[in-house]
Amino acid sequence: MLDQIIDARPAALGNGFTVRRILPYRLRRMLGPFIFMDHGGPVALPPQPVTSMDVLPHPHIGLSTVSYLFDGQLTHRDSLGVEQVIRPGDVNWMTAGRGIAHSERFEDPNLLVGNSLEMIQTWVALPEADEESDPAFTNYSIEQLPVFTDTGVWLRLIAGDVFGLTNAVKSHSPLFYAHVVLQPGTRFGLPLGYSERGAYVAKGRVEVSGRTYEAGQLLVFTKGIDPVLVAHEACTLMLLGGEPLGERYIWWNFVSSRLDRIEQAKADWQAGRIALPPTDNTTFIPLPDDKSKPVGSPPPPPLS
């Protein structure tokens, strides 16, 4: 049974680059430990404007960012001194913990000429015991990620445990995250055993219980139900979910179980107490002039 359907909304990142924002949503702030999900692209640009899409150094606390590319390439730099080219199919897992800053830049504009950039970025909230952990970054190459295939089904495990697949990607709480491609007419079910589960339709159309859902929709399912997704055409899905962590607050790039910790993070960024990437420290994104309070994560609404 479907609990909820979340339609992606356009969100401007600046410099003419707009993404589809899936999480957080006003009626569901989180899905398992996932508190943020953006779908960027596909976008193809001539060489000159590409560097205008660079994301300048900015801070995070209390979460792990997970960058996953379908197409294109970008370069990650962070305050630990890590410099990593992010390529399609790799998993790039950055744990902010008590605080980290990073940038994402397009180093070779010609990579997008005639091609496209398309990526999914998610944030995974940390358990309270890990919110002040040491920051870390790990790149898991495409060769480290198991792939499952069956008639009409291709699946790459990004993190967690699904359908008997596991990998070395380190997470801090029970979750699952997978990239799935279905051929037309294929029937496919979600993993069982998790309290909260969802399927984001990145491309194509799928049918569930006689109703069709389009690209840009996140389908959230009831615990214990074994839904069957039927591909109307070639489809790309992102499966995600896991065990809830309890209420979290989110403001700008900061996530925490404590309101006062977010206020401290604001002050730390303004005062320069969160270091910039050592090889990308001449510019940064200043703290927004936003007087709004951090948004909490209420429980899901009752079923209608």
Rank of each mutant, 00 (worst) to 15 (best):
T186G: 01
V50P: 02
V66I: 08
Q121I: 06
Y68T: 01
E207Q: 13
R21V: 01
R211Y: 11
R187E: 15
L237T: 03
W123A: 01
A159I: 00
D134G: 13
L23V: 03
S292T: 14
P33M: 06
V55E: 12
I158L: 04
A96I: 02
E83M: 11
P302M: 08
G193M: 05
A275C: 10
F163Y: 14
P277K: 00
I142S: 10
V66A: 00
I100M: 08
P278K: 08
V255S: 02
A96Y: 00
L218C: 04
R105L: 07
P298A: 10
W93R: 07
K266N: 12
C235Y: 06
T222K: 15
L190T: 08
L219P: 04
P24D: 02
E214F: 11
Q144V: 09
D130V: 09
P301S: 07
T186M: 07
G210K: 04
F221A: 07
V91L: 00
R273Q: 13
G81M: 07
L175M: 12
A159L: 00
A202L: 12
F221L: 11
D289G: 11
R205D: 10
M37I: 02
E83N: 09
G72C: 02
V113T: 07
F106M: 05
D130C: 12
R26H: 14
P46K: 12
P174V: 04
Q73V: 10
T51F: 10
A11D: 12
E263Y: 14
T222A: 13
S209D: 15
W93S: 05
V169Q: 00
S304M: 11
